[in-house]
């Protein structure tokens, strides 16, 4: 039982259990169907009354017991391998919050996608900033819950370069299925370069004219910039439009001016746009004044 990676550990245990299970299921169903056909009332009008057989009862307790103990043992060994990160693993902190992932490297660099080098084990230390989440990378067969107030961990060995999906797999509210990011596996050389460049850079690169800040802060999980209705209202044409909001259970109409936008980001619970759920987290302690201005400025630019 020498495991090389979590993928290989999970897959080998899976194949072991599935092979035995398929054999058992085929045996049970084939025997059942054979009896039903062979001992049909036409073929066998006179049944025989067999009350039981102690030896058989012992056989079908003991043999399955041995089988399931083997399954347990194999699964436990694979699991132990998956829980023991090698000493040379790259340590990355993962923060989950509704509904985004943040990763922090030992040199202070922060990202919203998990960037790792190929060929070196990666250990994630995971926590949550609000409710339960779960960090799941199907390609590497690893998963561990993000629990507020607690550190959990997992490790995996990325091999080959490319992008892999990273999901939240513990239900966490309206945006649960939007809480998706990528694991980007680079060559060791590219990773070294990436890691050294602008170590304290906070926002990454702008893509297609959208400030990276919006992606990083998770705004785009719920707000579109092209008019699509997502969990929250779209940013397109929002500035200076007339919006019906609910404040303390009463509906009224407001103009989405700068003051309104700033307040809606920092204290979203104050006015809820009619027809949308009151689920946006307060950004009051998450954004600096410059960041807020930059976000509001961007929304103003999407005026129709």
């Amino acid at each position: 039982m020498n495991f090389q990676s979590s993928t290989q550990a999970v897959d080998s245990v899976f194949i072991f259990i599935v092979a035995i299970s398929v054999a058992l299921l085929t045996g049970i169903v084939a025997t059942m169907v054979y009896f039903v056909v062979r001992y049909s009332r036409e073929r066998n009008p006179d049944p025989e009354n067999i009350e039981g057989n102690l030896l058989l009862e012992i056989v079908w307790v003991v043999i399955p017991l041995i089988i399931v103990l083997a399954m347990f043992f194999y699964g436990w060994r694979g699991f132990r391998f998956m829980r023991t990160a090698p000493a040379n693993a790259l340590l990355v902190k993962a923060y989950a919050s509704m509904w985004r992932w943040d990763f922090e490297y030992d040199n202070g660099r922060k990202t919203d996608r998990l960037i790792v080098p190929s060929g070196r084990p990666v250990k994630l230390v995971i926590t949550s900033r609000d409710v339960l989440h779960s960090l799941f990378i199907p390609a590497f067969r690893v998963k561990e819950d993000a629990v507020p107030g607690m550190l959990t961990h997992l490790w995996f060995l990325p091999d080959g370069t490319g992008d892999y999906d990273l999901f939240c797999s513990e239900y966490c509210g309206t945006g649960h299925s939007e809480m998706i990011t990528k694991v980007q596996v680079m060559t060791a050389e590219d990773f070294r370069k990436w890691r050294l460049e602008a170590p304290h850079e906070k926002t990454g690169e702008d893509v297609d004219g959208v400030p990276a800040l919006l992606r990083k802060k998770g705004c785009l999980a719920c707000h579109s910039i092209d008019g699509t209705r997502k969990i929250g209202p779209t940013f397109k044409g929002l500035f200076m439009s007339r919006v019906i909001v609910v404040t303390g259970g009463k509906e009224h109409e407001v103009t989405a001016n700068e003051q309104y936008l700033r307040r809606s980001v920092m204290e979203p619970e104050a006015d809820i746009v009619k027809g949308f759920p009151p689920v946006m987290p307060r950004e009051k302690d998450n954004l600096t004044e410059e960041e807020l201005s930059s976000i509001v400025g961007f929304i103003k630019g999407l005026r129709e």
Binding site: V13, F14, S21, L24, L25, G78, F79, F136, K143
Partner: peptide, 27 residues
């Protein structure tokens, strides 16, 4: 019932084994 319950029960073994559970938990 015997067929469906057996299939359900045997896939339960995959859930019950620690290594495989990590991958399929919550899916």
């Amino acid at each position: 019932f015997i067929f469906l319950f057996s299939l359900g029960g045997l896939t339960g073994l995959i859930m019950g084994s620690l290594a495989t559970n990590v991958h399929i938990h919550g899916t």
